[in-house]
Every structure is written in C-alpha cells, then in structure tokens.
Amino acid sequence: MVKLNTYLNFPGTAEEAFNFYKSIFGGEFCVLQRYKDGPPMEGCGELPPELGEKILHISMAIGNNALMASDAVPPMCPPVSVGSNVSLSLHPDSEEEGRRLFDALSAGGHVQMPYQPMFWGAVFGMCADKFGIQWMVNYELPK
C-alpha cells in the first residue's frame, strides 16, 4: 500500500506553522531537526548563525498520514514561493469535524469556497490558511 505524505517548504516560518497545525490536529511532532543539528550541506558553505534555529525537517502525524516540512531558506535551499502550488485535502469522519477543521484553518487566512453542501454529495470548502497553504475539506455525506 502506498501512503501519501505531504511535504511543505516555508520561507523561515515552518516552526510557527507547525505549532499552528498542532493546535488544530493535536498530537506531537514525530521529528524536529534544526539546521544547526544537521550535517554540513555540501556546496552551501558554512551555516550562517541566524539560520541555525530554522527547521531542517519537521514531521507530525495526522491520523495515519504524515505532514512534513522544512524551512527552505537560502543559502541552504533555493527560495520558496508560498502560495497555491500545493493543496492538502482533508477527509473528516463527520460534517461537524469538517466544519471545525475548516473554521480553524481559515482563521486569519482566506476562504476561497465556503464549507457547504456540494453537487457531488459532500460538504466541501476551500481556504488558504494564514501561511498561504491551500486546504480542501471534503466530507462525503452518507448515502
């Protein structure tokens, strides 16, 4: 069986973003590594001190899946462009849980499509959270 895990790159805000997601989903971080704790990165030269506390890799479980990320900051990585190039699709067990997730994720962000009944037999909404990450929440109504 193939498991799909989502990996996000942030321009230096990965820790703040993951603390936000942890407040919504609960649980703990499975992995939290900082650049200062990692091996020297070939071809990047010496690590600038201000980047030492940035996130090299972070992971947290959401159900049977994992959400992972890093701070993609120069000179360690090419600059990241936060925006609409990634959408994360959530499939909750109840309409109420879908509403809770949608409301929490959209707080401080932007609602693109309200969480509402849709023609395909689901309650669905789309939003961008306050970090610019695109989310879809889709609860399939019982038949």
Rank of each mutant, 00 (worst) to 15 (best):
T13S: 15
A69P: 11
C30T: 15
S23I: 04
P79Q: 06
M113P: 06
I133Y: 12
L47S: 10
L56Q: 10
M126E: 05
G125P: 01
P114T: 08
P48A: 13
N5E: 07
F131E: 01
R34L: 08
L90T: 13
M68W: 05
V86H: 00
L8Q: 04
K54I: 05
A69Y: 10
V31E: 12
M136I: 14
K143P: 14
I55A: 04
Y115C: 07
C30N: 15
Y115W: 03
N138S: 14
W135H: 09
A128N: 11
L90F: 15
K54W: 05
N19A: 13
P48E: 10
G27T: 09
F10W: 05
K36G: 08
F25D: 04
E15W: 01
V80P: 02
G12I: 10
G125A: 02
A17M: 03
D103I: 00
I58N: 10
C44L: 06
M60C: 11
Y139M: 10
N85R: 07
G12W: 07
P39S: 12
P74G: 02
N65D: 12
A14F: 00
G63P: 08
R99W: 00
V137H: 10
G52C: 12
D129E: 05
R100T: 07
V111F: 09
G108P: 05
H91D: 13
S59P: 09
K3D: 11
M41S: 10
Y139C: 13
P117H: 03
A104T: 01
G52P: 09
G83T: 09
Y35N: 05
K54D: 02
L90S: 12
G125F: 00
Q116R: 13
A104K: 02
R99P: 01
S84C: 08
A107I: 03
L4T: 15
F10M: 13
E42P: 13
E15N: 03
L90A: 12
G98M: 01
M126W: 01
A107G: 07
D103V: 01
L101T: 00
A61W: 03
I24N: 04
L67C: 12
Y139K: 11
E42I: 11
D37R: 05
F29Q: 02
F124Q: 02
G52D: 11
A104F: 00
F124H: 09
P117Q: 02
F18E: 02
A66H: 14
A69M: 13
N9W: 13
L141Q: 15
